[in-house]
Design a protein around this nucleic acid. Structure first.
Lengths: 276, 276
DNA sequence: GCGACTTTGTGCCTGCGTTCACAAATGGAT
DNA sequence: ATCCATTTGTGAACGCAGGCACAAAGTCGC
């Protein structure tokens, strides 16, 4: 049984990821050090990209798309790093995983960079998405415009509720979950999104896997058990909230500590204030 | 300007981080090594918890809650680690950040562990949440039952659309975004959730910060600029999808590589198959 | 054409997180 | 009461990712 990656992003996550985030996680993509026999260098390079770098590449891609829309033709690592909120050295190292497409003394050609990152991320072809669980979140996901515009068309919706079956959501009629196998195969679904209540998540996951889906995005607050060859990513809103809560608490502690410090100072513990 | 943590963080994270992960991110909570003057040990310990561990603690907490509901009184690190999908040594180290509440030879008392983790994560008090942007996602978040039940009551909703103002969503009437300052103060909002379209996100963020909100959960695919004392976590669905896409592509590469291997084998490159 | 300047790409170092492995501690059996 | 089985808690080693700093490389001006 494979353990699903945290966020980050993290992660972590989460992230960042959560990522993340996560945190993250920092799982090297190439598991074993065995030499690949007939591998071209592109594949070799792709395998060596750290998970965290992949997440950042996706961010760069978005920023670059924005740049391209504004007619920017060339960008330096410094500019791109500021816009993406990362260190410029890290950014250059991330881009070096993709290849050497910059011009020293000038910078990177936006169009070229977009193309190469898309190639590495496998975005040159569309990845059809199926959403399971058409509740509040499922509705939102089905209607979310950000997916199709970025090469992730939602092509199938599933729910257990007979009353929902046939009703179009975001332009796509809902299928009953029992049809998951045939529909996923027919529409070539490569990514499954689980937006069901927690108790149903594992069963839905199993059915998706049986249907041949090898990538799953899980919104249910459940640790899914999947075979080794299935990739699971989890988005857990409650966990994100709790991480924020931790920081609130920490901040409150610091504030009270500072207060104590001030009090001591006022009380005349002469001069010596520990710098922070 | 503080850079927001990935997910994953990988991501992520979570990130899974993130990540992704954050990705990973791996930001120690205690920035400098200066000795804290009047700090109790609890605070000291809390400050030293790695971000990635915090994310996992939240997961353990959920698993433990499930255990408690099923009437489980005691659990070993091995059992809990399996249920949480992490290494048991890592789990014990994570728990050691919280304190020593286990009994050697026996395991951990579920109730005690829940209490202590909640204390560290600052979940002993409620954290009021405001959601900005009542579109598809905003609706889903406002109606999401997972928040209030875990100590994160949604107490305010905001949108620019005058037509939405006053309409109750999930039991709470929508306020106009111009009221953000007064309403957040009155209802003691500590966490702001941004579910607006990308172009509005930075402006909304600035207004939340002005209103005194110090923790932000951002669903808009934008890198937010915030002061150092504001904590931002980002949930980016498109990035999650793209990370999955990367794995699909990698898998496709591996498959073709394996195929080439098979072909070579059939062609009679006698016997010697590189183990994977 | 040559020099000065700019920016990339990367080797190296540091530091954190993960993992291993074991000593300490506890409960239960004999 | 002592011993054994079990499980925690943590010191130490390891490995990866992040950041610095510089050499390589290319552009622009003269």
């Amino acid at each position: 049984m494979a353990v699903q990656r945290g966020r980050g992003r993290d992660g972590t996550p989460n992230s960042p990821a959560d990522a993340v985030t996560e945190p993250i996680p920092a799982v090297r993509v190439n598991g074993n050090g065995a030499p690949t026999p007939g591998g071209r260098d592109v594949r070799e390079r792709a395998r060596a990209i750290p998970e965290a770098a992949v997440a950042r590449l996706a961010v760069y891609l978005r920023v670059l798309s924005g740049m391209a829309e504004q007619g920017v033709g060339t960008i330096s690592s410094e500019e791109l790093s500021v816009a993406s909120g990362v260190n410029s050295a890290k950014l250059r190292k991330d881009l070096s995983y993709v290849g050497s497409y910059g011009t020293r003394g000038v910078g990177y050609e936006v169009a070229v960079l977009i193309e190469e990152i898309e190639r590495i991320l496998g975005l040159t072809r569309n990845h059809s998405v199926a959403v399971v669980g058409i509740g509040n979140l499922g509705h939102a996901l089905a209607n979310y415009g950000g997916f199709p515009s970025r090469g992730f068309p939602v092509v199938a919706l599933f729910d257990v509720d007979e009353d929902l079956v046939g009703i179009p959501v975001g332009g796509i009629p809902v299928n009953h979950i029992d049809e998951i196998g045939t529909v996923c195969a027919a529409r070539d679904v490569s990514i499954g999104v689980i937006a069901t209540p927690p108790p149903a998540a594992q069963a839905v996951c199993d059915r998706l896997v049986s249907a041949g889906v090898r990538c799953i995005l899980n919104f249910a607050p459940v640790v899914l058990q999947v075979p080794d060859d299935v990739e699971v990513r989890k988005v857990d809103l409650a966990v994100e909230m709790q991480i924020l809560s931790f920081h609130v608490a920490r901040r409150a502690d610091e504030a009270s500590a500072a207060e104590m410090n001030d009090t001591a100072e006022v009380a005349g513990v002469d001069g010596m204030v520990i710098p922070r």
